[in-house]
Amino acid sequence: MTRVRLRYSKLGKVRFLSHRDVARVLERAVRRAGLPVAYSQGFSPRARLHFGLALSTGFESIAEYLDVDLVDGVGDWDVAELPESLSACLPDGLEVGAATTIPAGTPSLQDAVSWCTWQLDIPGVAPGVLAAAVERLGSADSIPLDLVRKGKQVREDLRPLLGDLVAERTAEGARLVADLGTKPRSVRPAEFYAALDPTGPLPDVADVRVLRRHQWINVDGTRREPVSLGPPSPHAQERAS
């Protein structure tokens, strides 16, 4: 059995698909592409697809990952051709950009990914307001976050899970690029957004356009992407529109 790691993007209208929806669409695409996907044992055999961190409904991404187990010696496939053959079976906006085989024993995506880089486009906000909030967060020793967990009110510190943070000005407002940790648990972009606590008004989180730019794993002390992307596909944006 060979494990293949795929990197894909989710852009445009399909951002409204849920994680479950995307999983089912990818499972059908693997079948339609004729790949010899392995199935689990038992009365309800399932295709052996292993998904990485979930992406919330409404968010976009250029860095999603999926591992697929393929049966050796069956069918005729070439890992270099997988991006094209799978993308042909996917709806507009979902596109496989890179694929690589990974050795047995490679940690799963869920275990390995430790940080994500998020991009938040915030319409109509004054850049100064955001810059001040970023400044404050960056210099804070702790960022208390109140959560309800198992029906109980708990307070967590967001600080250890907040990495690099940059604010930029855009035509419509401002863009925040933030590294958020996933260990011991993933910080949600909405939680981070709520923690900004700006001096001026921020638009409703529903109006913020969120895109995952990177997921990071740690290899011998350096951070790397699970699958690095070659030169960007010239069709990626076009297909998503």
Binding site: G34, Y39, S40, A47, G73
Partner: peptide, 18 residues
């Protein structure tokens, strides 16, 4: 599925798996 030991699609006639 029996041959591969873990179930598979691919050559299963014209069907794309179970």
């Amino acid at each position: 599925a029996g041959r591969s030991g873990s179930g598979a699609a691919g050559d299963a006639g014209d069907l794309c798996g179970p």
